[in-house]
Protein backbone atom coordinates (compact mmCIF):
# COMPACT_ATOMS: atom_id res chain seq x y z
CA UNK A 1 0.00 0.00 0.00
CA UNK A 2 2.85 2.38 -0.75
CA UNK A 3 1.44 5.70 -1.91
CA UNK A 4 4.66 6.65 -3.62
CA UNK A 5 8.31 6.43 -2.84
CA UNK A 6 8.06 9.60 -0.81
CA UNK A 7 4.90 9.03 1.17
CA UNK A 8 3.67 5.86 2.81
CA UNK A 9 0.72 5.16 5.03
CA UNK A 10 0.17 2.52 7.61
CA UNK A 11 -2.93 1.77 9.62
CA UNK A 12 -3.03 0.15 12.99
CA UNK A 13 -5.37 -0.11 15.94
CA UNK A 14 -3.86 3.16 17.19
CA UNK A 15 -4.79 5.00 14.02
CA UNK A 16 -3.14 6.09 10.82
CA UNK A 17 0.52 6.82 10.42
CA UNK A 18 1.79 8.92 7.55
CA UNK A 19 5.48 8.49 6.86
CA UNK A 20 7.18 11.20 4.84
CA UNK A 21 10.51 10.71 3.10
CA UNK A 22 13.36 12.35 5.01
CA UNK A 23 15.56 13.31 2.05
CA UNK A 24 13.41 14.72 -0.74
CA UNK A 25 13.13 18.49 -1.15
CA UNK A 26 10.52 19.88 1.26
CA UNK A 27 8.53 21.69 -1.42
CA UNK A 28 8.36 18.58 -3.57
CA UNK A 29 7.32 16.50 -0.60
CA UNK A 30 4.48 18.91 0.18
CA UNK A 31 3.25 18.98 -3.39
CA UNK A 32 3.23 15.16 -3.49
CA UNK A 33 1.41 15.11 -0.15
CA UNK A 34 -1.17 17.56 -1.49
CA UNK A 35 -1.69 15.40 -4.57
CA UNK A 36 -1.95 12.15 -2.64
CA UNK A 37 -4.40 13.40 -0.04
CA UNK A 38 -6.48 14.98 -2.81
CA UNK A 39 -6.62 11.71 -4.73
CA UNK A 40 -7.69 9.75 -1.67
CA UNK A 41 -10.06 12.31 -0.26
CA UNK A 42 -12.81 9.86 0.61
CA UNK A 43 -10.42 7.87 2.73
CA UNK A 44 -8.63 10.73 4.47
CA UNK A 45 -11.35 13.30 5.01
CA UNK A 46 -11.97 13.59 8.76
CA UNK A 47 -8.99 11.41 9.67
CA UNK A 48 -6.42 12.00 12.41
CA UNK A 49 -2.85 10.93 11.65
CA UNK A 50 0.53 10.62 13.29
CA UNK A 51 3.19 12.04 10.99
CA UNK A 52 6.61 10.41 10.88
CA UNK A 53 9.25 12.81 9.57
CA UNK A 54 12.23 10.49 10.04
CA UNK A 55 15.50 12.30 10.68
CA UNK A 56 14.63 15.41 8.68
CA UNK A 57 15.20 18.75 10.36
CA UNK A 58 11.99 20.77 10.05
CA UNK A 59 11.32 24.31 11.34
CA UNK A 60 8.07 25.42 12.97
CA UNK A 61 7.31 27.54 9.90
CA UNK A 62 7.65 24.48 7.67
CA UNK A 63 5.51 22.45 10.05
CA UNK A 64 2.83 25.14 10.02
CA UNK A 65 2.87 25.02 6.24
CA UNK A 66 2.43 21.25 6.27
CA UNK A 67 -0.33 21.31 8.90
CA UNK A 68 -2.24 23.97 6.93
CA UNK A 69 -1.94 21.78 3.84
CA UNK A 70 -3.31 18.64 5.48
CA UNK A 71 -6.07 20.66 7.17
CA UNK A 72 -7.27 21.71 3.73
CA UNK A 73 -7.83 18.01 3.08
CA UNK A 74 -9.74 17.59 6.32
CA UNK A 75 -6.85 15.79 7.99
CA UNK A 76 -5.63 16.53 11.49
CA UNK A 77 -2.19 15.68 12.90
CA UNK A 78 -2.23 14.22 16.41
CA UNK A 79 1.52 13.82 16.86
CA UNK A 80 4.88 14.13 15.14
CA UNK A 81 7.44 11.36 15.28
CA UNK A 82 11.03 12.28 14.52
CA UNK A 83 14.52 11.21 15.46
CA UNK A 84 15.67 14.81 14.99
CA UNK A 85 15.55 16.81 18.21
CA UNK A 86 15.15 20.18 16.44
CA UNK A 87 12.07 18.82 14.61
CA UNK A 88 10.49 17.61 17.83
CA UNK A 89 11.07 21.02 19.42
CA UNK A 90 9.50 22.71 16.41
CA UNK A 91 6.49 20.39 16.69
CA UNK A 92 6.05 21.17 20.37
CA UNK A 93 6.30 24.88 19.53
CA UNK A 94 3.25 24.55 17.28
CA UNK A 95 1.41 22.64 19.99
CA UNK A 96 1.75 19.04 18.78
CA UNK A 97 2.65 15.99 20.81
CA UNK A 98 5.95 14.40 19.81
CA UNK A 99 7.51 11.01 20.17
CA UNK A 100 11.23 10.54 19.84
CA UNK A 101 11.76 7.82 17.32
CA UNK A 102 10.32 4.86 15.67
CA UNK A 103 13.16 4.06 13.36
CA UNK A 104 12.51 1.51 10.66
CA UNK A 105 15.59 0.08 9.01
CA UNK A 106 13.81 0.41 5.68
CA UNK A 107 10.37 1.50 4.54
CA UNK A 108 7.85 -0.65 6.35
CA UNK A 109 6.13 -2.91 3.83
CA UNK A 110 2.36 -3.00 4.19
CA UNK A 111 1.24 -6.60 3.84
CA UNK A 112 -1.79 -6.69 1.60
CA UNK A 113 -3.67 -9.00 3.88
CA UNK A 114 -3.26 -6.83 6.95
CA UNK A 115 -6.66 -6.77 8.58
CA UNK A 116 -8.15 -5.23 11.67
CA UNK A 117 -10.50 -7.20 13.90
CA UNK A 118 -12.82 -5.17 16.10
CA UNK A 119 -15.44 -6.59 18.46
CA UNK A 120 -18.02 -4.00 19.49
CA UNK A 121 -21.16 -2.15 18.43
CA UNK A 122 -20.30 0.78 16.19
CA UNK A 123 -22.71 3.53 17.18
CA UNK A 124 -23.95 6.72 15.53
CA UNK A 125 -21.11 9.20 15.12
CA UNK A 126 -18.35 6.62 15.48
CA UNK A 127 -15.93 5.99 12.60
CA UNK A 128 -13.69 2.98 12.12
CA UNK A 129 -10.93 3.68 9.60
CA UNK A 130 -8.12 1.41 8.48
CA UNK A 131 -5.87 1.10 5.43
CA UNK A 132 -6.34 -2.67 5.15
CA UNK A 133 -9.38 -4.93 5.58
CA UNK A 134 -11.78 -4.55 8.49
CA UNK A 135 -13.72 -7.28 10.26
CA UNK A 136 -16.27 -6.07 12.77
CA UNK A 137 -18.02 -8.47 15.08
CA UNK A 138 -21.05 -6.45 16.14
CA UNK A 139 -23.59 -4.09 14.60
CA UNK A 140 -22.97 -0.97 12.55
CA UNK A 141 -25.79 1.33 13.65
CA UNK A 142 -27.26 4.09 11.47
CA UNK A 143 -24.98 7.14 11.57
CA UNK A 144 -21.82 5.04 12.11
CA UNK A 145 -19.17 4.65 9.40
CA UNK A 146 -16.55 2.10 8.41
CA UNK A 147 -13.89 3.28 5.96
CA UNK A 148 -11.39 0.68 4.77
CA UNK A 149 -8.68 0.50 2.14
CA UNK A 150 -9.64 -3.15 1.64
CA UNK A 151 -12.77 -5.25 2.16
CA UNK A 152 -15.21 -5.06 5.05
CA UNK A 153 -16.85 -7.97 6.86
CA UNK A 154 -19.60 -7.24 9.38
CA UNK A 155 -20.64 -10.15 11.56
CA UNK A 156 -23.84 -8.41 12.61
CA UNK A 157 -26.37 -5.92 11.27
CA UNK A 158 -24.98 -3.34 8.88
CA UNK A 159 -27.25 -0.29 9.02
CA UNK A 160 -24.74 2.56 8.78
CA UNK A 161 -22.36 3.57 6.00
CA UNK A 162 -19.49 1.42 4.74
CA UNK A 163 -16.84 2.49 2.27
CA UNK A 164 -14.65 -0.40 1.12
CA UNK A 165 -11.70 0.07 -1.22
CA UNK A 166 -11.59 3.70 -0.12
CA UNK A 167 -8.04 4.04 -1.46
CA UNK A 168 -9.25 3.09 -4.92
CA UNK A 169 -9.50 -0.72 -4.90
CA UNK A 170 -12.71 -1.60 -6.76
CA UNK A 171 -12.20 -5.33 -6.16
CA UNK A 172 -13.00 -4.82 -2.47
CA UNK A 173 -16.22 -6.42 -1.19
CA UNK A 174 -18.57 -5.73 1.69
CA UNK A 175 -20.46 -8.47 3.45
CA UNK A 176 -22.75 -8.62 6.45
CA UNK A 177 -25.11 -10.99 8.20
CA UNK A 178 -27.82 -8.40 7.65
CA UNK A 179 -26.99 -5.93 4.90
CA UNK A 180 -29.30 -2.95 5.37
CA UNK A 181 -26.92 -0.01 5.02
CA UNK A 182 -27.88 3.64 4.66
CA UNK A 183 -25.24 3.71 1.93
CA UNK A 184 -22.52 1.48 0.49
CA UNK A 185 -19.43 2.75 -1.27
CA UNK A 186 -16.79 0.72 -3.06
CA UNK A 187 -13.83 2.65 -4.49
CA UNK A 188 -15.50 5.66 -6.17
CA UNK A 189 -18.96 4.12 -6.55
CA UNK A 190 -21.90 4.87 -4.31
CA UNK A 191 -25.05 2.80 -3.81
CA UNK A 192 -28.10 3.51 -1.71
CA UNK A 193 -30.06 0.71 -0.11
CA UNK A 194 -33.38 -0.01 -1.80
CA UNK A 195 -36.36 1.33 0.15
CA UNK A 196 -37.84 -2.14 0.43
CA UNK A 197 -35.46 -4.78 1.64
CA UNK A 198 -37.32 -7.66 3.19
CA UNK A 199 -34.57 -10.26 2.69
CA UNK A 200 -32.97 -11.34 5.91
CA UNK A 201 -29.91 -13.41 5.11
CA UNK A 202 -26.18 -12.89 4.82
CA UNK A 203 -25.34 -10.88 1.72
CA UNK A 204 -22.34 -9.36 0.02
CA UNK A 205 -21.77 -6.38 -2.21
CA UNK A 206 -19.17 -6.07 -4.96
CA UNK A 207 -18.55 -4.11 -8.14
CA UNK A 208 -19.75 -5.75 -11.34
CA UNK A 209 -19.40 -3.82 -14.60
CA UNK A 210 -19.11 -0.44 -12.93
CA UNK A 211 -22.03 -0.95 -10.52
CA UNK A 212 -22.36 -2.06 -6.93
CA UNK A 213 -24.32 -5.31 -6.91
CA UNK A 214 -25.73 -7.01 -3.80
CA UNK A 215 -26.24 -10.76 -3.78
CA UNK A 216 -27.11 -13.51 -1.37
CA UNK A 217 -24.10 -15.06 0.28
CA UNK A 218 -24.69 -18.49 -1.30
CA UNK A 219 -24.01 -17.08 -4.79
CA UNK A 220 -20.56 -15.93 -3.76
CA UNK A 221 -17.80 -17.35 -5.95
CA UNK A 222 -14.40 -15.92 -6.37
Amino acid sequence: MTMSDLISIKGSRDGLRLRLDANAAWSELLSRLDHHLGERRSFFHGASVVIDLGDREVSSAQLDEMLALIRQHGVQATAIDSSERATRMAARAVGLATRPIVRYPEPMPMPEAEALLVIRTLRSGQVLRHTGHITLIGDVNPGAEIIAGGSVVVWGRLRGLVHAGALGDSSAIICALELRPTQLRIADLIARAPDQHPINRPEFARVVAGEIIVDGWETFKR
Binding site: R123, S124, G125, Q126, N141, P142, G143
Partner: peptide, 12 residues
Protein backbone atom coordinates in the same frame (compact mmCIF):
# COMPACT_ATOMS: atom_id res chain seq x y z
CA UNK B 1 -33.14 6.91 18.95
CA UNK B 2 -30.31 7.89 16.59
CA UNK B 3 -29.22 10.62 19.01
CA UNK B 4 -29.53 8.24 21.95
CA UNK B 5 -27.20 5.84 20.11
CA UNK B 6 -24.66 8.65 19.70
CA UNK B 7 -24.90 9.38 23.42
CA UNK B 8 -24.40 5.71 24.34
CA UNK B 9 -21.21 5.74 22.26
CA UNK B 10 -19.94 8.87 24.00
CA UNK B 11 -20.77 7.47 27.43
CA UNK B 12 -18.93 4.24 26.63
Amino acid sequence: VRDADRIVGLIE
